[in-house]
């Protein structure tokens, strides 16, 4: 598993993919940060994080689209599947590599907050809570991306498919306002990654939401493992 993790990390940096992700992420987050705090003259950064969720919908698929699709296209998965590594180990290694890339980039973008400390009075605890929530949401999105990547041979299909599912997850809250039936609204807001995030913006560490994000991650990683196990029988 460690070998695959190391290989994945190296691939992010020997192909343009890792650099593209970091560059796009920092550019988008920098822009959103500037607009939502500096330009609005506020030191409250929960708005920034809220907008970033939509940035993730576009950026996380870049990170995960290749992970399995490319192996399958190039038939390199054969060496992984005929080596003494479990499928779970293989999926986890790829997931953790993508997560490492994501977490590193998010931490790098934390530099943005420093000026706020000097020129404003941000609520540090609240920002910290939001940061954790963002990492959790990113984790969910990565798991979705890894899962979709196991379904196809084409990285492009994988990235578009991932975006589709993520839009559904994050956008459920938006559709919510258009629907009158209570039960549908209830279900949609339960599914919505976005509405779960709200408590964090009030500075509350929401354990239910944390569990929700971790469960979604686990479910999609489990599905990815199942896809691979099933493919051996197909």
């Amino acid at each position: 598993m460690l070998a695959i993790y190391k290989k994945e990390m190296r691939t992010y940096f020997t192909t343009p993919l890792g650099y593209v992700f970091i560059a796009v992420f920092l550019a988008v987050s920098g822009f959103i940060f500037a607009v939502s705090t500096l330009q609005s003259q506020t030191s409250d950064i929960s708005g920034y994080f809220q907008l970033m969720i939509f940035g993730y919908i576009v950026m996380i698929p870049i990170l995960t689209m290749r992970s399995f699709a490319e192996e399958r296209r190039a038939k390199t998965e054969q060496i992984l599947m005929t080596s003494p590594v479990s499928i779970t180990g293989m999926v986890m290694a790829k997931f953790l590599a993508a997560f490492t890339m994501f977490a590193m980039t998010v931490l790098a973008s934390c530099l943005y907050y420093l000026p706020l400390l000097k020129y404003g009075e941000p609520n540090v605890a609240k920002a910290f809570g939001c940061l954790i929530a963002m990492l959790l949401i990113g984790t969910c999105f990565i798991a979705v991306g890894i899962f979709v990547s196991t379904l196809t041979e084409s990285a492009v299909t994988a990235s578009i498919g991932t975006m589709g599912i993520l839009v559904g997850f994050a956008g459920a809250a938006i559709f919510n306002n258009l629907i009158d039936t209570y039960i549908i609204r209830y279900v949609l807001s339960w599914i919505s990654i976005y509405s779960r995030y709200v408590n964090f913006t009030y500075g509350i560490f929401d354990i239910a939401a944390t569990l929700y994000y971790l469960s979604i991650t686990a479910i999609f990683l489990f599905l990815a493992v199942r896809v691979y196990e099933r493919r051996r029988y197909a």
Binding site: T14, A74, T76, E77, I79, S83, P84, S86
Partner: peptide, 21 residues
């Protein structure tokens, strides 16, 4: 599979090599 795979070296039809390594 874990123990059995340790005993096998396999060259598939298409060599499973990573072009970026």
């Amino acid at each position: 599979p874990y123990e059995a795979k340790k005993l096998i070296g396999f060259l598939p039809e298409q060599p499973p090599v990573y072009p970026d390594m």
